[in-house]
Amino acid sequence: MRDFSYLRASSADEARQASLQAGSVLLAGGTTLLDLAKCGVMEPETVIDITHLSGLGEITVDAGGARIGALAKMGQVADHAGIRAAFPAISESLSLAASAQIRNMATIGGNLLQRTRCSYFREPDVFPACHKRNPGAGCSAIGGVTRNHAVLGTSDTCIASYPGDLAVALVAFDAVVELGGRTVSVEDFFLLPGNTPERETTLQRGEMITAITVPASAAPKNSTYLKVRDRQSYEFAAASAAVGLEFETDGRTVRDIRVALGGVATKPWRARNVERALVGKILSLETVEAASRLAMEGAVSHGANYYKIELAPRVVARAILKVGGLA
């Protein structure tokens, strides 16, 4: 690990100012940053510690929705009574993520910006070819071990999946990232790899995530996050789904439904085609299964990740049936 200088920011402005410098990086819980620094993927020259900034860790929930400060810990958000009541899928996405130790360290802002678990991305000395690390260098994953790579949103340059859970629940419920001066929806915040897999979000140098807001409505209140993986705990998703559902007054016809997928796409993936197929329909096993299959429209496998194309719709279907009271 390279020597770096350490700056403890005393204000958000100071942090932003300092992070304008090339080679500088913000430090929150450090669970992504330190990990990748040890792998030699991130080699910061200056680390700007934002954990002491005040006012960035608050969680408030009211009738209009939730506002989660960027420095709130994963564990705090998962356990927050208001979040659990109004956004169960958000709480579950966090409590099913990582381990208790990591959830106690890691922040919401850092969580959104976690990096892919692509093995090739994580071993620069052995696999120099990685467009994401080194634009133009090639992609070692294509043709290699791809069990955890994405089937949706891939490009010829990068097939790495976005591994996080929280962001999946956030895109389902139209959450917005506050970046100090501007706001952007979580969905637009994340970028497809296209020809620029090194650009993962619209975050600009000198910007900082200050909070995330999520509007309240009936669908997120009746929501769930379903995460499927080989190991019972402490593993990233093979496939996951965040689903929220609101019925018409008849209790059977879908008025509003939100569906997003994790573990299968290059970014947190909102499945609007599944939603469209169900709005106005009476929820049944058949309608749900047929609609869930639409989630894989355009999916491409790269070898060992083929199973995700079969698995993901089943996960979506189960999650919908669960919130619809049919499973």
């Binding site: 093995s119 071993e123 043709g143 290699g144």
Partner: peptide
Amino acid sequence: RNGRTVNNNMGDYLVPTNAD
């Protein structure tokens, strides 16, 4: 292609957790 064990860390080489 190069004989490398690519899941060479405890995040990717899975052993049972208490929950398992």
